[in-house]
Simulated scan of single mutants.
Amino acid sequence: MCTITDIVICGFNGSILKYCGEKMDYEYILTRLSKMLSPKRLQHSIGVSKTAEEMAERFGGDKVKAGLAGLLHDAAREVPVADLLPRAQAFGIVVSDIEKAEPILLHAPISAKLAESKFNIHDAEILQAIFLHTTGGAHMSLLDKIIYLADVIEPGRNFGGLEEIRAMAHSDLDKALLLALDQSIAYILEEGGLIHPATIEARNDLLIKQRTPILHTT
């Protein structure tokens, strides 16, 4: 299987990139993203892509899907905040009251829509992983977990508690994800922000799965 850095040119029709299984024009994606993102944000996306590939290899995931989802996860991150809500509504995204109050959260679902509409990505797993990379959610797939964590631990990140998450991500994906969710929730609480229900669902789902074997033996 090729990796994101080994991907060969599949060709494109006009401005629409053709997605042919595991083949994708990586340089074409970078060229388009460079017009949508600042150099710093583009470097972050490359870091997430490479980190996601490494994690996919470690935990038995699809490296190509992980690389693509990581590269495109922030496609809408630099859409002006004032434009996020109307953009989401134009895409037909269902917007919650929390997202109306914190429209920056909408960059994730809008990024998934841009991956589909601008880069012709129709793989449901890739799109869902992009959609969930900010809030998480219940019953996250392997790819969902990888992209969420890769966004947190990519080499350009630097914050307190990060090394513990990085270390755990080398051995236990779920425990690393739980640490990342806990840190995110603690930060939001400290800032007096709104916690998205999907984040709570993601955390609770992990805890329930951890405790289920114990419950079955009591």
Rank of each mutant, 00 (worst) to 15 (best):
E190G: 15
A66G: 03
E164T: 05
G60H: 06
A186M: 10
A66N: 08
I7H: 11
S34N: 00
H73W: 01
G11D: 10
L127E: 02
A82S: 07
L178W: 03
A66T: 05
E154D: 11
L177G: 02
G192S: 14
I16M: 14
T51Y: 01
S111A: 08
Y148A: 01
L178Y: 06
E116F: 10
K18P: 02
H122E: 09
G161K: 03
M1C: 02
P155I: 11
N120G: 15
E54D: 03
V79S: 00
A69E: 05
G21K: 12
I165L: 12
F91I: 05
P86W: 02
L194C: 14
K50W: 06
V64F: 07
K175S: 04
D151S: 08
C20Q: 13
A176R: 05
G136R: 11
G161L: 04
A202G: 13
D144V: 07
S171F: 13
C20W: 11
S141D: 08
G156S: 04
G67C: 07
L181S: 06
V64W: 00
A186L: 11
E27C: 00
A169G: 02
T5I: 14
N13W: 13
P86Q: 01
G192N: 14
E22T: 08
P109A: 07
E191V: 13
T135D: 01
G193C: 15
E116M: 12
C20H: 13
P80F: 03
K50T: 09
M55C: 11
L189M: 15
D174K: 06
N204T: 14
I98R: 06
R203L: 04
L105C: 02
Y19Q: 08
A101V: 10
L127Y: 08
G137C: 06
L114G: 02
L207A: 10
S38P: 01
R32P: 00
A138T: 04
H170F: 08
F59L: 08
H170R: 10
L181V: 11
I29C: 12
